[in-house]
Structures are given as C-alpha cells and as structure tokens.
Amino acid sequence: MSESTETKMPLDNYLAQGGKLTSPENVTPRYRGHIMRMMASFIDSQLAGSAGFADSVNTGPGVKERIAASRITLEKLVHAEQVLMLLGQFGANTERYFSHHPWTARLPRDSDIGNSRHGQDMRLNVFHYPIQGWIDAVVMNVLMGKAVSVQLDENLKISYQPLAEAYREILPRERRHAELGLEGLVKILASGNTRHEVQQSVAYWRPRIAASFGSSSSERFEQLQRLGLRNTPNEQLQAAWEKDVSVSLSELKLD
C-alpha cells in the first residue's frame, strides 16, 4: 500500500468492473456508508442472535444438545467480533459498540414488524422475536442458519476484500450451525409426540425469516450492484432459501 499517482481510473469504474477494495483508505464516502451499514447489520444480528440463543443452552434436553447450543452461542460472538474488528478500522469505537445496546432485548412473541428495522440497532428483524423453549430454538436455528448461509454465500463476492474474506471463514461455521440444528430436529421428532409443536414453530419462524430478506428497491440494488456490494436480488436469495428449507422440511415430513 502506498500513495500512488500512477492511476487515474475512477473508483466507480473500477468497482463496476469487479475491482476489489482492500482498506478503509481506498473507499469513497458513499461506499463507506454502505459497507459500514452492511457490517453493522451483520454484527448486530450475530450479537442479538447469540444473546437470544444463550438462554436455550439450559433448555437443551441432554449434554450433547447443550454443547451444540453453547457452541452456536459462542461462535456467533466470534463472528461478530471478526467483523467488528473491520468496522473498527473504519473508525468505530469497538468497545462501546458492543456495550451500547442490550442485545438480549426482544419484542413480545405475537408482534409483527414485517421487514422493517426496529429500535436503535441494525439487527435483522427476525432477531427481535423471542425464542420459546428448546424445540423453538432448534427450529429457529435450522431456518435462520440456512438463511444466513444463503446471505453469506451472496456476500463472498463483495467488493470489500477484508469483509469477503471474513465471510469466507464464517460461512462454513454458519452452515454447521444449521446442520447441528437439523440433527437436533431429527432427534426431537424421534423423541415422541413433538410433531405438532415443531410444525407450530416452523409456522411462526418461516414467514418472519422470509421477511428478513427484505425487498430492496431496484434503484438501491442497482446502486449497490455498481459498487460491487450486491450481486443477486433479494427475491432470488429468498427463493433459494425457500427451496432449501422446503427440501429439508419435506425430508422430515414437516411440509
């Protein structure tokens, strides 16, 4: 890295052609705003997700389940920290950032906020809803784990290379979280008269997670696409998730 006058290519051109940015000093103010917002949304979702899942550890029926739930709780914090470190390089105060919000805060179970943001943080709407008991935690984890995997897969091509690389490390662990959830769900279904409760939980989380994909305006999407920050429209991502979920649910005869 160095000062350079060897290049005159406008940054927007470079990005539109698939160029990568590698440090906060490369970016334009507009890009800075977008990328920081995307990072904040990821961090807040992971922090809120971890905080919400922590209580589930004690509801796990056996030690294996509790280990799995602890691991998910821990790794989501690790993921948040990884990206928070990158946010810090843009000037965020990382210590205060973590403590500025009560990440355990939740809305009442029966509220419906659609795909709108709520409150003073950038977590995805789905992390505003409370989890109720072990079965609910496992179902939420399966459905959301798959959604996060779809979103992260999309973001591997993001033009801010340090973030793309962080996501590349995070994605396999998130996929594993969804798999752990699926293993848990199989066990729950085999354990007795649980099918109805599982179905109720699926019915609760499925539309809420679907809403978390959002429906960004085409103008905004095109702007982000030009900056190399988006690749696939939200609707297509949601469709990919729906397909994945349908396959899993039908294997478990839950559809």
């Binding site: 977008h34 920081m36 917002r37 904040a40 000037g91 105060n93 950032y97 919000h101």
Partner: peptide, 10 residues
C-alpha cells in the same frame, strides 16, 4: 448512511 445511532460506529 447510519448504523448505531449512538455515536459509536461513525
């Protein structure tokens, strides 16, 4: 652009 609205993220 905004994220935290608490003066911590910039």
């Amino acid at each position: 652009p905004y994220a935290c609205k608490a003066g911590v993220c910039s």
